[in-house]
Nucleic acid binder design. Structure first.
Length: 330
RNA sequence: GGCGCCAUGGCCAAGCGGUAAGGCAAAGGUCUGCAACACCUCUAUCCCCGGUCCGAUUCCGGGUGGCGCCU
């Protein structure tokens, strides 16, 4: 069909078993893993982000994990640049890049590419943003929405008047480039992805099952020293400085306990709740992709009538890959 | 056994005579450079019976259940 290189992507909600599957596939197919996770990029954020351990990595090379200070900012554009570089590097060595993670926007950015949208959030532009933010505080977000209507009615149409963050971004794009954000978006849609991406998604027929896994995993995180991890980051002032890392689930919830504002049980419950809600948002995000090959993790094998084992899941994924390759080469 | 208080959606909770705020959870959704973010949509006829009233979740009586105190 075409001669674009193949990239495999494993996606799904938190705690669905992506990482283990990705490692198994990397071993079977000669691949390396590119993490597609907005938080595992940070150093010192290990147990709370469920960052794979040395043991879990099983000698498979993981890219875009554990390389950035928690105080640093990071965007989906940065991700697109780095992930594509990593993919090209793996491909040049004859390996299969396997994207693995639950950050939908990052996967989008990888596939869509680094669009010509401007660095509206860098350098001197911060002044403009600060100005908009103070306008919002003094006069309300609606005023910003009205401003957006003037310069970019299409974006204003698509962004809810209450969504200050998105309104500001759209205004910034116009302010810095003179081109409406909606126009940038339109242009980026015409870019062709340089890879053949096979997306395999993990999902649960019984959501309660996933939720129970999430709860179990949170308890395990607490056992494994998440509190100390949060404490250490708090001491370093990370939560005041970092725009990205400070939003991480687990960290922001436990901070209340670390600072003596609530008890641990309450925070743990909040953390579970936040993770469940996050998983739901991830599922919503991924369902709009039309080309995901879903594996229902808690379904039964059609022949044996037994619930799929990890081996079964790996085999299904391998089959999907083989099918994808064979029709891709034709 | 006596006295008092309470009874509103899965949970918390306002209203106290004109036909039920809000928060949380659940569910559904949006998403193009902070995304583990931000944002949107959405769920009740007020414990039961009787009475007063044009009209009761709101007043009165009884019942049931819960809480507190007393003997």
């Amino acid at each position: 069909m075409n001669n674009k290189p193949t990239v495999l992507a494993i996606i799904g909600p938190t705690a669905s078993g992506k990482s283990a599957l990705a490692v198994a596939l990397a071993k079977a197919l000669g691949g390396e893993i590119i993490s597609c996770d907005s938080m595992q990029i940070y150093r010192e954020m290990n147990v709370g982000t469920a960052k794979p351990t040395e043991e879990e990595m099983q000698g498979i090379k993981h890219h875009l994990i554990d390389f950035l200070e928690p105080t640093s900012a990071f965007s989906c554009s940065d991700f697109a640049t780095l992930a594509r570089a990593a993919a090209d590097n793996i491909i040049s060595r004859g390996g299969l890049p396997i994207l693995c993670g639950g950050t939908g926007l990052y996967l989008d950015a990888f596939i869509r590419g680094n669009s010509p949208s401007p660095d509206a959030d860098k350098g001197a532009d911060l002044e403009y943003r600060a100005r908009l933010e103070s306008v919002a505080i003094e006069q309300g977000t609606i005023v910003l929405h009205e401003m957006l209507k003037e310069v970019d009615p299409d974006s204003a149409e698509n962004i809810h008047p209450n969504n200050q963050k998105r309104i500001i971004r759209a205004l910034e794009v116009y302010h810095n480039t003179g081109i409406p954000k909606s126009e940038h978006d339109r242009r980026s849609k015409s870019f062709e992805c340089p890879y053949n991406v096979l997306i395999i998604g993990l999902r649960f027929a019984d959501r309660e099952l996933l939720y129970r896994r999430i709860e179990k995993r949170v308890d395990l995180m607490i056992e494994n020293g998440l509190v100390d991890e949060v404490k250490a980051l708090d001491v370093k002032g990370v939560f005041e400085v970092s725009p990205t890392a400070s939003q991480a689930i687990g960290y922001k919830e436990l901070l209340a306990y670390v600072r003596g504002l609530t008890d641990l049980d309450t925070c743990t419950e909040e953390l579970k709740k936040a993770t469940r809600r996050y998983a739901k948002r991830q599922m919503t995000w991924f369902t709009r992709y039309e080309n995901i090959h879903w594996i229902t993790v808690d379904s039964a094998d059609s022949e044996t009538n037994k619930v799929l084992t990890f081996e079964d899941i790996v085999n299904i994924a391998k089959k999907l890959y083989a099918d994808f390759i064979s029709c891709g080469i034709i």
